[in-house]
């Protein structure tokens, strides 16, 4: 019975000493004090030999149990203290996580570029390729090959910058149509994005702006196709439920020609300042390629038909972002650019 009593008093004194221990070295000290070579419990174990055999077994079992208890308690406490210490250390290392990150702040793409790329991507996903042409263009490509001879009244539709009598700043991206058709045979479908120039400047006109031209030529291309492709585009760019309407118009290089309107996105068609009360906003020009244009590039208009379209990117961007002055695009104020 003496062994058991010894065990429980050891356990009691151990627990009394453990509770104030607050560091890993103190725990180590305790371990040595109880379980070391000269430890209190070790000494008791050594004393077991002096007990009568019948008491020895019982007292031995009790002491071993106590030893195990102490070992576990020490280990548990040590782990607790380690975690506590780590927490303290980490807490002391705290920084202000609300300060800004240290990466390079990226700049912003110009909204016109963003719209241009968005439209380009819609056409590319429909299988159109992307073509380019010179911005300083021959009169021939800008006008004559597009069925606009010199002295044609349609030249008045576009105020032209001249470099010489035969060289102009292209007034539209349409000359790319002619250049590509001269180079490639049908069928073809491509778009031509780029800068164009008109000798004109006021609140809604700048002397330079961006257009995307498109052309699709094949053996059975119809006006119906034109309607479907442009409707798909406008639904993607604006919203799938924006109304789209086609009305007859005139471009020398297309026939039939159409202006395409979308339902005013500001007033939803009830009439406002932007749509001049009509409920509709003119968004692009299009039509079936005029057979004269095909003849100029050596395509047989009896075999091939095609559609062409052209749209102003600034205009579309203004509608997308509710921008009311086209000149903002070219001031390059960082407070403007930073919004896109």
């Amino acid at each position: 019975m003496g062994g058991q009593r010894k065990s429980s008093s050891l356990r009691e004194s151990f627990l009394n000493e453990l509770s104030p221990a607050s560091s890993v070295p103190e725990i180590e000290e305790l371990r040595v004090r109880y379980l070391g070579k000269k430890g209190l419990l070790t000494a008791e174990l050594k004393n077991l030999g002096g007990l009568p055999p019948e008491q020895r077994r019982e007292a031995g079992a009790a002491l071993n149990e106590t030893k195990e208890f102490i070992e576990q308690a020490l280990a548990r406490r040590k782990q607790e203290l380690k975690e506590l210490e780590l927490r303290r250390k980490l807490a002391s290392e705290s920084i202000d996580i609300t300060l800004p990150g240290s990466h390079v702040r990226p700049g912003h793409m110009h909204p016109v570029t963003q719209t241009l790329e968005e439209i380009t991507d819609v056409f590319v996903s429909m299988g159109f390729s992307v073509e380019e042409g010179p911005e300083v263009e021959l009169d021939y490509y800008n006008f004559e090959a597009l069925n606009i001879p010199k002295e044609h009244p349609a030249r008045e539709m576009q105020d032209t910058f001249y470099v010489s009598s035969d060289v102009v700043l292209r007034t539209h991206t349409s000359p790319v149509q002619v250049r590509v058709m001269q180079r490639k045979s049908p069928p073809l479908k491509f778009i031509a994005p780029g800068k164009v120039y008109r000798c004109d400047a006021d609140i809604s006109h700048t002397p330079m702006f961006h257009q995307i031209e498109g052309l699709m030529v094949g053996e059975d291309i119809t006006f119906s196709n034109l309607k479907a492709v442009l409707e798909a585009l406008l639904h993607r760019i604006f919203s799938p439920d924006v109304p789209v309407r086609f009305r007859p118009s005139y471009f020398p290089f297309t026939e039939p020609s159409a202006e395409v309107d979308i339902g005013c996105i500001f007033c939803k068609g009830t009439g406002c300042r932007t749509c001049k009360g009509s409920g509709w906003i003119e968004i692009l020009g299009a039509g079936m390629v005029n057979p004269h244009v095909f003849e100029m590039v050596g395509y047989d208009p009896k075999q091939y038909s095609g559609f062409a379209f052209g749209m102003g990117i600034e205009r579309i961007t203004m509608l997308k972002y509710s921008i009311d002055d086209i000149r903002l695009f070219f001031e390059n104020d960082i407070r403007f650019l930073g919004q896109f």
Binding site: M216, G218, N225, F246, P248, P256, S257, A258
Partner: peptide
């Protein structure tokens, strides 16, 4: 082409159905 245009515009562009090109 002018005759086609006259017929199309008086017929009404809005009455012409849409059909994506079979390409």
């Amino acid at each position: 082409a002018d005759i086609v245009e006259e017929v199309a515009r008086i017929y009404g562009y809005d009455r012409i159905p849409t059909a994506l090109p079979a390409s």
